[in-house]
């Protein structure tokens, strides 16, 4: 049996359950606050929140239910924010196609969200199995200058 990459949920600082449509807004506002608290620039806060909005919407639309996990990551002197979008939904059949995206005009096309998320964040990882679920892990480093 195929298993998805395992996430240790206890490692994360905050979790938001995505079940109702309003939870998309809750998730992105929460992440916005965390990013601001961590000292990210306004431009980066906007990017991070927008990425979370995309991820949360995908969960709501396709899996109906899932979670957004957020944590602060420290790598030496650097601070980064890491976000996991996790669901036990239908999974993505063709991951490469979904990520490559470009922007189709089909309403709610998955590719729409994910390719944008990848461009906004520093690191992007996805694991998905049909019938089992999807995990997306993204992170962004706080810039110092």
């Amino acid at each position: 049996m195929v298993i998805l990459i395992q996430i240790n949920f206890e490692e994360y600082d905050v979790a938001v359950k995505i079940k109702e449509e309003k939870d998309i807004v809750v998730a992105r506002q929460m992440v916005k606050d965390i990013a601001r608290r961590l000292g990210f620039s306004l431009a980066d806060i906007t990017k991070i929140s927008t990425a979370v909005s995309e991820l949360a919407r995908n969960i709501y639309r396709y899996a109906k239910e899932g979670f957004i996990y957020v944590k602060e990551k420290k790598e030496g002197q650097n601070v980064a924010i890491e976000i996991v979008a996790y669901d036990k939904g239908p999974g993505i059949e063709n991951i490469n196609q979904a990520i490559m995206g470009g922007f189709t005009t089909t309403k709610g096309s998955l590719g729409l969200g994910l390719s944008g998320v990848r461009r906004l964040m520093d690191e992007f990882f996805i694991d998905s199995e049909v019938g089992i679920g999807t995990v997306v892990i993204v992170s962004k480093r706080r810039r110092s200058f």
Partner: peptide
């Protein structure tokens, strides 16, 4: 302050 792809669409 946040406009994502769905809103744009």
């Amino acid at each position: 302050d946040i406009i994502d792809s769905y809103i744009s669409y």
